[in-house]
Design a protein around this nucleic acid. Sequence first.
DNA 1: CTGAAAGCGCTTACAG
DNA 2: CTGAAAGCGCTTACAG
Lengths: 344, 344
Amino acid sequence: MDSHQQTRTRAPRVTAAMVAAKAGVSTATVSLVANGKTQGRVSEENISRVRTAIAELGYVVDSIGSSLARGVSSIVILVTPDVSNPFFANVIAGVRESLGAQYQLLLSVTDAGESPQADDVRKLLALRPAGLLVGAPSAEFLEDLSAGGPLVLLDAPGLDSWAPSVNLDVAQGARELARHLASSGHTRAAYVDGITGTETFKLRREAFLEEASRCGLTVSADHIISTSIDVGEAAAAFAEAWPSWQREGVTAVVCGTDTHAYGVLQEARVEGIRIPEEVAVAGFDDLPYSATSNPSLTSVHLPATDLGRKAGEQLRALMEGLALTEAHVTLESSLVVRGSTVPA
Amino acid sequence: MDSHQQTRTRAPRVTAAMVAAKAGVSTATVSLVANGKTQGRVSEENISRVRTAIAELGYVVDSIGSSLARGVSSIVILVTPDVSNPFFANVIAGVRESLGAQYQLLLSVTDAGESPQADDVRKLLALRPAGLLVGAPSAEFLEDLSAGGPLVLLDAPGLDSWAPSVNLDVAQGARELARHLASSGHTRAAYVDGITGTETFKLRREAFLEEASRCGLTVSADHIISTSIDVGEAAAAFAEAWPSWQREGVTAVVCGTDTHAYGVLQEARVEGIRIPEEVAVAGFDDLPYSATSNPSLTSVHLPATDLGRKAGEQLRALMEGLALTEAHVTLESSLVVRGSTVPA
DNA sequence: CTGAAAGCGCTTACAG
DNA sequence: CTGAAAGCGCTTACAG
């Protein structure tokens, strides 16, 4: 059994030359048939001979050879800053859906929350991707990327000048959230931010803070903290900050992501802090679990699947050489109010 | 600005020939230096000339050309049946961690819960991956894959004869769960299974059922249902089944994944069914959210990150031509008891 | 409609 | 230590 494993040998590769020999044609003809470019260039006779040979030998065009000849591969690279955030699972599903089967999706992820570096970019580009999808990028990253081909940005507010983009209007939901809290009677709130400097986090925070101050909800500078996107870290950070926040009259905590909010909920449970009576909690993303958390979590809903789907569509158009009718698309966000901000 | 986007041109590719010309050497020498194979084959003089030229031109070995010449790419493909399950985010993180920077991780996902087909396999193999990591595969899939090179299976119970593997001992946790419920006084339970025919689901179910019957916890055949791994679908399935289950004395519901369990929790809340008083609920996976759900969820903890990390290590050894000291590794699972099965 | 040939960028015996 | 050359598998003008 072990020898079965150790001696795994690659089956002899079936090449276009083998198909050509079997069908009695040239490799040029095999290539034409395999790629469906026979229109007025290959006789019916030869088409069927080649098809038969392909089927019998189980031939598949080698993508390495093909990529080298064409100058581009069939790989689409999706660069995301953080796969561990379940938000991305939905983005990925959307991308796959719209990209179709002819492109291979390569997920490139950096370590949790870190932005990819210039060196990573080069390695990605060395794969000769057919297209690039970049989520929540930094401006430097885009600078490094400047040499690329088809490129679509996802969730890249303020970076529209670099490339076509699909964005989320997080500000709208953030403002709704501020108004919701203010109208629920809160006058002092704290903010738990993501630690990565991604634009969307900044936008969420700034839109919230601006609208908050407009409606009489105060968030003082030392009531803003940040942690990585991790339940445990958020819990710890909240644990440390809460005593003084409470002393200083904070009655609402807004988190940059639902994951941060789960940490706050967890710590609150451990410490016996009542939610929403003692402190209201809200997040961004509206992850699937926010409906079942304890209590259920008020959150700004972001359409992750749509984001991925639309970005895939745009990229596909670009890769096919089409002009985009709309280079910049914005998807709406909206507040979902649940038990963490409203007493049952 | 739009024209900036439309006219994006690929920067002229820097080739080994350009580096060679600049350094005054042959491309063979450039290749040797770029790949660090200079040991006793290139003079110090030439090494530094080439290094300088590489740095000045920003040369990166083209992975397509390189792959074609070597016969294998630097891509590692991770085939997973379902990215939307957050469990995989951790598996992926573990794989990335142990695989290192020299391999590119390509995530290949099929549509939710569907097994990849023979045709998909061929497309994957056409990329000439350096290695393959296959999660929760079916036997047919492995059959199709038989031609491959380095391969490690993840979470593939019962398929050890195909390739080296890293498995989870889910049975152990499943038995613990059965004993926990029986000792809490339950005598009738129902089971909500995953709809995909993956071995791990079968193993979870069978180990649970076996131990349950051993300790006097009855699970009749018509109290076993299955849905896809989706909160909403699980909720709907539970909603439909619960009235008769309740009538027939069921007081505990065990779910094949935590995601299924979230659906049950959600429906229970909607219907005002008290948990754990009226019905106890438990799952498998121990996702991060299970600690904060309402109520918190009793679950069989599975070490996702370790699974990915260990599988990456094994594959790496294989790709480097090393023999594995242990071809089959099993990681332990354990029950985490929380509020969904024990009254506060 | 068809095939011989060049070329994509690189690696690796091989001869020197 | 070095470079000319063959070859990886495919695609695409090009000549017929």
